[in-house]
């Protein structure tokens, strides 16, 4: 699948280095599962890690470590590590562990004007949720205190800048004030991760914010 909006180099490096909070890891891993091009981009940054590992000076392992490892290998319950299959469903493999097998199994909560969300359980450094936006509906205009990643899973949305389709990621930060609107041809379902609450421009969504954990 050809996607247009990729992660920037800083986020690729942060993911490759393993320093993103779990919620962002989930978004990145999900995008990687949708697009080979995205995986290739990531892999080129992970190669830095391979190089650094290769250049790291050795620290001696404990004397029996190799034997210990062979023992662990042999005593392991022959757990077969099968590669997960690439599936064409809405939820790529990494997301299924968080959101359930399919769209139908998601427990949505209405948050007004037909917009629904489902909070996913991750560690508390950042939060992740699924968002359902009915066709043609706009999200309240907001900006961000921290970093926000929005990955389109189904349908599409547009904001002042561009159109975002399945596999596209929009990166929101302090500089982005936007008003994402689902396209008219169907609902848009997104996976959103954020490490700070949003700043809504109008007072009503701001008052509701604590109740909806957005």
């Amino acid at each position: 699948m050809t996607i247009k909006h990729h992660l920037n180099e800083k986020l690729l490096m942060s993911y490759a280095a393993g320093i993103l909070p779990e919620a962002f890891n989930l978004v990145v891993a999900t995008q990687m599962s949708i697009s080979d091009e995205a995986r290739a981009r990531l892999a080129s940054y992970e190669a830095i890690g391979g190089g650094i590992l290769e250049e790291t000076e050795k620290v001696e392992m404990s004397p029996n470590s190799l034997q210990d490892v062979f023992n662990k290998i042999k005593s392991a319950k022959t757990k077969k590590f099968n590669a997960p299959k690439m599936v064409e469903g809405v939820f790529p493999e990494p997301l299924k562990k968080y959101a359930g097998k399919e769209l139908g199994s998601v427990k949505w909560k209405n948050i007004g004007r037909g917009v629904k969300q489902s909070i996913l359980k991750t560690d508390s450094d950042a939060s992740a949720r699924l968002l359902y936006i009915p066709a043609g509906t706009a999200m309240p205009n907001h900006s961000h205190n921290g970093l926000e990643m929005t990955l389109v899973l189904k349908g599409s949305f547009h904001d002042e800048k561009d159109l975002f389709k399945r596999g596209d990621i929009e990166i929101g930060d302090q500089d982005l004030h936007h008003n994402p609107t689902a396209s008219n041809d169907g609902p848009c379902i997104c996976l959103v991760a954020s490490d700070a609450s949003l700043r809504f421009k109008s007072i009503i969504p701001r008052l509701l914010q604590p109740f909806f954990k957005i």
Partner: peptide, 18 residues
């Protein structure tokens, strides 16, 4: 990451390429 956070990490690297 697992050792530090004791949580699951999504592991896309196990996925086969297209």
């Amino acid at each position: 990451i697992d050792a530090a956070r004791r949580n699951n990490r999504p592991e896309p690297e196990d996925l086969p390429w297209g």
